[in-house]
């Protein structure tokens, strides 16, 4: 569905000049600062996949999505989206994709939501029965009917995202790019959007690329995760594998029957101490929880214990920092 090969994008950021003729001078003799936003990116996405595309701010996520949309032309490399080269067939590509950019709405600010949807219906030449059917689905799953006659400026952020989501899907695209659609949205709406994304992916076979900073989105929704940093893929695979590879650190939480002094156990490190509770971090490749528990309970009476799995956010933080499995274990 998507084929990206050695994709690179260099920006030329202009150094601005001030003064009356500043922008004219810049026009004729501009100095540029080069900036590599995307660096030799390669990946393939199959039809029907739901991919979490994550990375820190400025990692190149939005830039690569804009290239997939045909808004930006790559500096080098190849892109194919469902057989089309986006920047060469911008309009044909536009018909087969939908996009939500969470930071800004694509709807008309001062007119009712439905007005924007009707316009998109006509721009994309959506047949009336398909349009009706889609509206019905948006009513059911997004509660569109609750705010479809209100102008966008009066909508809450959650409503606006739902409206934008509807607008991106009104023409039954094969592909959906979601660039931070959850930003600033409350938990209830988030849950609703997640369910909606999954449903659209499952029932309509829409391939989805989802950019988010919320790891719960990834855990709940995505079947595959691609982590990008400094314009390059640093991880591509499923969630389980990333846990195995980077998430080797476990934490053993022990509640002792009485206060005990701080101590270290073999292959484990005391990370936190609070009242009668202590937290020990260990690498599961070096030692097992049972060995650790045996060692500790031999020294002090243990009242209760638990082993904590690393959460995905922590793992991703490790990957962002460029740390390999060793670093993650420390």
């Amino acid at each position: 569905m998507i084929h990206v090969e050695h994709l690179t994008k260099d920006y030329r950021r202009v150094k601005r000049r001030e003064g009356l003729f500043g922008n004219l001078r810049t026009l004729f003799s501009a100095e540029y600062e080069p900036l590599r936003a995307v660096n030799d990116l390669s990946f393939d996405i199959a039809e029907g996949e739901l991919v979490g595309y994550i990375g820190p701010n400025g990692a190149g996520k939005s830039t690569s999505i804009k290239m997939l949309c045909g808004i930006l032309v790559p500096s080098s490399g190849r892109i194919e989206v469902n057989g089309l080269v986006p920047h060469k067939n911008r309009m044909a590509n536009a018909l087969q994709i939908g996009a939500v950019f969470g930071q800004k709405t694509q709807l008309w600010w001062d007119v009712p939501v439905i007005e924007s949807l009707r316009l998109f219906r006509d721009i994309y030449k959506v047949p009336e029965p398909v349009y009706r059917q889609n509206l019905e689905m948006f009513n059911d799953l997004l509660g569109l009917h609750e705010f479809r006659d209100a102008p966008v400026r009066q909508l809450s952020l959650g409503q606006r995202m739902r409206a934008d989501m509807a607008a991106a899907l009104i023409h039954n695209p094969h592909l959906l790019f979601l660039d931070e659609p959850m930003i600033g949205v409350d938990v209830v709406v988030k849950e609703r959007l997640r369910t909606f994304i999954q449903q659209v992916n499952r029932e309509r076979k829409v391939t989805v690329i989802l950019t988010t900073h919320d790891m719960v989105d990834i855990e709940k929704v995505c079947s595959r995760i691609m982590i990008i940093d400094h314009g390059q893929i640093v991880y591509d695979g499923d969630l389980e594998r990333i846990r195995e590879r980077y998430g080797t650190t476990r934490t053993l939480v022990i509640e002792f029957e009485e206060s005990v002094p701080d101590f270290d156990a073999p292959h484990a490190r005391l990370v936190k101490s609070e009242g009668r509770r202590k937290w020990f971090a260990f690498n599961r490749l070096e030692t097992s929880p049972s060995a650790l528990i045996a060692h500790i309970s031999a020294r002090y009476p243990v009242a209760d214990l638990a082993v904590e799995e690393p959460d995905i956010e922590e793992i991703v933080r490790t990957v962002y920092r460029g740390g390999g499995p060793q670093e993650a274990a420390r």
């Binding site: 804009k66 911008r90 309009m91 536009a94 950019f101 930071q103 800004k104 694509q106 721009i123």
Partner: peptide, 11 residues
């Protein structure tokens, strides 16, 4: 960045 949306449509 609102100019992007003009390039996102088949028009």
């Amino acid at each position: 960045g609102t100019f992007d949306q003009f390039l996102l449509r088949p028009a």
